[in-house]
Structures are given as C-alpha cells and as structure tokens.
Design a protein around this nucleic acid. Structure first.
Lengths: 206, 206
DNA sequence: GCTTATTTTGAACATTCGTTCAATATAACG
DNA sequence: CGTTATATTGAACGAATGTTCAAAATAAGC
C-alpha cells in the first residue's frame, strides 16, 4: 500500500507544478519509480487519479478547519463570550491550510498550488463541490450569523475573495515579490487576515 | 491580416478554456478555419503564440487603466482636491479590466480567464513581468503615496489580493455561486472595491 | 501447501501532439 | 507585365500521449 501513496505523491507534485494536461502518466510513473500500467492500476484513468489526489487530503483538511473552529468556540465559552470574533472564524479557515501547505517543513507543500488549479478551472467543478463546498458552507453560515445585515451573495463573494488571497499566497506569491521591490519577510498570513477581516466588516457596515 | 486576428482570437478562446497544455495547435486551426501550418506561420511556436495572445491586449488595457487614473486626477484637481481617494485608485485599475472582460457584450470575454492562468503559473513569469508589472508598479506607488505608513510588502500583498479577487470574478465566479445558495444579481465589482478598500485601509491603520 | 487475490511487469495499441518542408496561390511593388 | 514577398496548402516526420492486455511475481486466506 506504500506504492499507492508514492504514486499519489508523485501525481500531486507534478499536477501542481505542470497542471493536469501538462503532466503525463509516464512522468508520474517515472517520479514514483513504477511502471505506467501500475499507475493506472492504482489510480484508474487520469481524471480519476486527479480526483483521488485532490480528495485524499480534503477530509483531513476539513477536520483541521472544523476542529480549529470548535476549539475557538470552547475558548470563547470559557471567556464568557457567546460569539466568536470574525477574526477567529477566518483564521480557523485559513491557518490550517497555510500550516499544511506553506509553513516550514509543511507536510503538503504541493497541495496549495493544486487547489489553486482546481478553483480556477470549471472543469473540476464537481471535485470542488465534493471536497470543499460543505466546509465552506459551514464557515459562511458562521460569518452570516455574526454579520446578520449583509447579503448572502456579498458574503459569499467576500469569502471567495478571501480564499483567492489565501491561494495566491501559495500559488502566486511570486507575483507579490514581483510587485514589491524589497522583500522584507513579513507574515503575509497575518496581512491576509487583516485585509479580509476589514473587508468583511465593510460589507456589514453597508 | 484578418487571418492573424482570427487565429489569435481562436487561440485566446481555447487557451482560456482549456489552458496552454490542454489546447492543441490543431484545435486552434480548426476553430480559426485555417491549416495547422498557417497557425505556426502567423504565431510561431506554441509558446510564442501564447505570448502574442496575452501581449496583444496588454498595452490597450494598460492605457485604459492609466487613462482612468489620469481622468480621476483631473477631476480631483477641478474639485480642489490634491489627492485621489484610495477608492478612485483601485477603481481605475479594476473597472477597465472588468469592463473589457465581464460586462454585457464585453469585447474580450476570454481574456479574464486567460490572465488568471498567467497569474497562477510561474511558467509565465516573464510574460507577466512584461505585460503587467509596469502598470502594477504605478498603481502600488500611487497607493503607497496615499498610505505612507504601510510597508511596501504589505501593500504589494494587498494589491495581489485585490487582483486575485478581480480575477476570481472572471475565472472563479462559479465558486461564488456554489457557496451562495440563492443568486441575487449583485454588483460584485462594487463588492470587490468595498472589500479591498477596507482591507487596504486596515493595513494603514496598523 | 495449495489456491485464490492482488500487485507488478513488459509490451503493444491507436491517436494525437508540435513542428517542418516544399509546393502553390495570392498580394505587393516597380 | 514581371518580379519579389507574403500567405496558404497539403503532407509528412518523429515523438509523446492515455489506455489496454496477458503474463509473471508476490501476497493473502484457508
């Protein structure tokens, strides 16, 4: 069963770097140290393999996000608060993702770029719906509960803006470096949370 | 010379829908009603053709953005203001792009998705640098002048967040629909400007 | 230990890929 | 008109593509 993991790892890495169509089964086989037929044996047709690669980490990621949310709810209860802050909700969604994909020694260094591809290509609509929509719905509901005046569509748009920024940190950080001349190593995750929190609050104020 | 335009149009449309590797020269030739060799004759190798497709609209787009900026500066002068508002700067960058790619009867309906691809794939770093970095620098400088306290890196990150949101409106709007159940036809461009303006101001406040 | 699954191998299939080339048609120009 | 460019055609090249299959090796179950 270690073989299958090696194949999925190679597929994740190559799909994230060269995209679905830019990656061949033979590339994956070579990087995994296996034969082409073995890749099909464990991964099925190419599109199914892609699905497996994305779905493999979706459940653990969703659990990390929901656990972060629950832990902050417990902490808020202990503090006598009956509501989470917007910042806590956003951080519960963003931090686990960046922790797994972008931190030093991140365990899923290719997964961030991969999800950026999925989010940008309507061809993977079903995969995105299966892997990410349920968790997204939980968080948007949570935010809507906190900002009751804002329209659902505006909140959803703002949520997608936040996710887009999060994905930009993993897939388009080279663009940030290109725009800024100097490169002070700032904590861009905090910058994103600052940015998005203020953006959401503006929608609430009207 | 109408032939070349037909080829570039077909290439733009297909590249934007299926990506660089997912689009074949033969697909482009068929959609343009031409022979494969003719595509190479006008477009050169595939990567050069892609470059031409992206670069073709880059200069007109940059001019629209800078013109919007200048016009708002003139209007501000007439009003006796010596500075643009942050909102005016952001709108000058965002509105021309959405006007050309997303409005009803937009003249470049595929270009938005195409630029989203370029921004997400480091392989096109040089194209992005050539086509978009100069204009981006102008706008970031303009914002930095208005928000003198904020760090350059944070401003650049916030700018990339704004661009990511803008691109999400053209390339990932299906994700917004998936997150929001109902679909009130809101003006998402205004929502983006609200969101980003507040985000930038938060960075300024610290 | 024998038998049934499962995993792995090696090779082959038909297609499609980007690119090239010489030949032909059309346009531009003096 | 004659001549030099440019545009277009049709065909071909070798290489790479996703997928399939039967055979061989290994593991699992009884």
């Amino acid at each position: 069963m270690e073989t299958k993991a090696r194949i999925l790892d190679a597929a994740e890495d190559l799909f994230s770097k060269r995209g679905f169509d830019g990656t061949s089964i033979r590339d994956i086989a070579k990087q995994a140290g296996a034969q082409v037929a073995l890749v099909h044996h464990h991964g099925g047709p190419k599109e199914e393999l892609f699905h497996m690669v994305v779905a493999r980490r979706a459940k653990p990621l969703a659990e990390l996000r929901l656990k972060a949310l629950e832990e902050k709810k417990s902490a808020a209860d202990r503090d006598g608060r009956n509501k989470l802050t917007l910042r806590e909700i956003l951080a519960s969604f963003v931090q686990p993702f960046l922790e797994m994909t972008l931190s030093d020694g991140a365990p899923w260094p290719a997964y961030g770029r991969l999800i950026a591809l999925v989010s940008a290509d309507e061809r993977w609509r079903e995969i995105a719906a299966e892997c990410f929509d349920p968790t997204a719905a939980v968080f948007v509901d949570e935010i809507a509960d906190l900002l009751p005046g804002a329209s659902r569509t505006a909140l959803s748009a703002a949520f997608v803006f936040t996710v887009s920024g999060m994905l930009a940190l993993t897939a388009s950080s080279w663009r940030i470096g290109a725009v800024a001349r100097e490169q002070e190593q700032a904590d861009l995750a905090e910058t994103l949370l600052d940015f998005s929190e203020a953006g959401f609050l503006r929608l609430y104020e009207g």
